[in-house]
Simulated scan of single mutants.
Amino acid sequence: MSHRRLALKGKLSFSHPAVRAWLFQIIAIVVVVVVAIYLVHNTVTNLSNRGITSGFAFLDRTAGFGIVQHLIDYQESDTYGRVFLVGLLNTLLVSALCIVFASFLGFFLGLARLSENWLLRKLSTIYIETFRNIPPLLQIFFWYFAVLRNLPGPRQALDAFELFFLSNRGLYIPSPEAGEGLWAAIAAIVIAVAISVGLFRYNRMHQMKTGQLRKTWPVGLLLIVGLPLLAQGIFGSALHWDIPELRGFNFRGGMVLIPELAALTLALSIYTSAFIAEIIRSGIQAVPHGQHEAARSLGLPNPVTLRQVIIPQALRVIIPPLTSQYLNIAKNSSLAAAIGYPDMVSLFAGTVLNQTGQAIETIAITMSVYLVISLTISLLMNIYNRRIALVER
């Protein structure tokens, strides 16, 4: 009994590494909390002494200004809280567009860097070395001021099939509007996708058991296309299209891709795709060359080798640095304020701050939004990274 007490006393003594580690962590947390409380109290006291109103009550006040692009209904009589939603959605829109475009372009360029075609390999190298060494803000200025702002006016707009119109006011495209058969079409698509996924898994199990390969995509494509068309024939059209028309000095109707959004999307997608291309190239080259030789000895064609053997192994190297590039896209989207795109920085940390004077609150909200977006991207990418990680058994 005495030996156990001595052992327990030794584990709980300050000389034990685990005890010291926990003690230092507790002290660090207490210091951070005390400093935070002091800063908050000091800020509130100074604001009160100067007669400056603090708090988030200003979110219920009328904004009184217009926003050129909004994904939800917005009027000048709406509140600052509505402005926050508009800015948040615009930030998410440009981040999502840039992530998709940069990923596809970067993947193609990364493969081109490893191509046996000399011209394709050199062109991709020039692209990567050029655009990744030019600051993104300068690229935004180039696309906005030198390219998009020099397009013809609305009356001389470039058009395609009298449906799409490109001018210095932006790209106008038909806008979809819900029809009477929308929900039936959505249900048909969900059913078609569910059947296709089930058929794919069944064919995969059949291949593992018998070695016979059955193609799933012809039946899946037929279901995904045919079932919604059948639903529309029975329940009516799922969508109606609002076609833009030139009325007066500008187009009316449809949807518009404003030049600010186009310039920001082009610049960030091109800039980030150069880094993603290098990540793809290094990830593929990190796969042992023996994997290429083993696939070639089995008679697998190069596209199948790349898709089934090389890329799945390269993803384990690609995903961590790719996450950093996605985070950079979300943070670099704040450069939109330089050309007046109505994102969180331009609207909240700019216009709303100047009108209300609530500097601390608006900056805190803007910082919190970017923090949440970055943490969400990191969480999703880490979940995917764990799914594809090798597990030793």
Rank of each mutant, 00 (worst) to 15 (best):
R201M: 09
V31N: 13
W241G: 04
R307F: 07
W183P: 01
L88S: 07
G253E: 02
G340S: 10
L268T: 12
I276R: 00
I243A: 05
R296G: 03
T45K: 10
L213C: 06
L300A: 09
Y202A: 11
H292C: 00
V31P: 12
H206W: 01
T210I: 03
L163W: 06
S175R: 08
D159H: 13
F14Y: 12
M255S: 13
L39S: 15
M208V: 06
L199I: 13
I280A: 05
I140G: 15
R204N: 14
F65L: 10
V40M: 14
I383W: 10
A267Y: 07
L166F: 13
S54E: 07
I279E: 00
I27E: 11
I134M: 01
V345Q: 01
F142L: 04
T366H: 09
G10W: 01
T45L: 07
R252Q: 12
V44A: 15
F235H: 00
R82M: 14
E361I: 07
P312E: 09
V369M: 05
F235Y: 05
E260S: 15
T305I: 06
L298H: 08
K215Q: 14
A277L: 03
A262F: 15
S175D: 11
Y80S: 09
Y384A: 04
N328F: 06
A188D: 01
L246Y: 02
R204V: 04
P218M: 03
V19M: 05
P136H: 07
T125R: 12
A277V: 05
R20W: 11
E260P: 07
R386N: 14
